[in-house]
C-alpha cells in the first residue's frame, strides 16, 4: 500500500497544478519487487516520492516519466525484469506493467 506521503504528494501536485507524473504498478507477473498498486510520483526536477521497486526497473520507468512530463500522453510501460542487465544478477525475475499518468496539468482538458 502506498504511503501517506505519496497520496499527499499527488494531492498537492494536482491542486497546485505542479507538473508531475504518477507511476503505479498496474499488474505483475512472476516475482517483482513491489506489488500491484505501488506508486511513485516523479517531479519535473527529476526527484521522486515513493517507490515501485528500487533498482529493479525504476530507472526505465523514470525515463518514460520524464517523457510524459515533456508533454507525452499517459501510457503503460512494461518492465521486463527477467533479463539480467550486464554485470548484474537476475534479482527480480518478473514482469511488471506500470501505468504512467500526468498530474497537475491544469491546462489539460479535464
Amino acid at each position: 500500500m502506498p504511503s501517506d506521503e505519496v497520496y499527499a504528494e499527488i494531492q498537492s501536485a494536482v491542486t497546485a497544478g505542479e507538473p508531475a507524473v504518477l507511476a503505479t504498478v498496474a499488474q505483475t507477473f512472476g516475482s517483482t519487487p513491489r506489488k500491484t498498486g505501488a506508486k511513485m510520483v516523479v517531479r519535473r526536477d527529476g526527484s521522486f516520492v515513493g517507490t515501485i521497486g528500487g533498482g529493479c526497473g525504476e530507472a526505465e520507468v523514470w525515463q518514460e516519466a520524464m517523457d510524459v512530463l515533456d508533454g507525452g500522453a499517459a501510457r503503460v510501460v512494461t518492465v521486463d525484469l527477467t533479463e539480467p542487465t550486464d554485470g548484474e544478477d537476475k534479482i527480480c525475475g518478473g514482469v511488471m506493467r506500470v501505468f504512467l499518468e500526468p498530474l497537475g496539468r491544469t491546462t489539460a482538458a479535464l
Binding site: 501517506d4 497520496y7 499527488i10 494531492q11 494536482v14 491542486t15 491544469t106 479535464l110
Partner: peptide, 18 residues
C-alpha cells in the same frame, strides 16, 4: 479551494487513505 475534477478526485483519495 481548487474545485476542478482532478483536484476533487485527489482530495477524496487522500481522505480515504487517511
Amino acid at each position: 479551494v481548487d474545485e476542478s475534477l482532478p483536484a476533487r478526485i485527489a482530495q477524496a483519495i487522500l481522505t480515504a487513505s487517511r
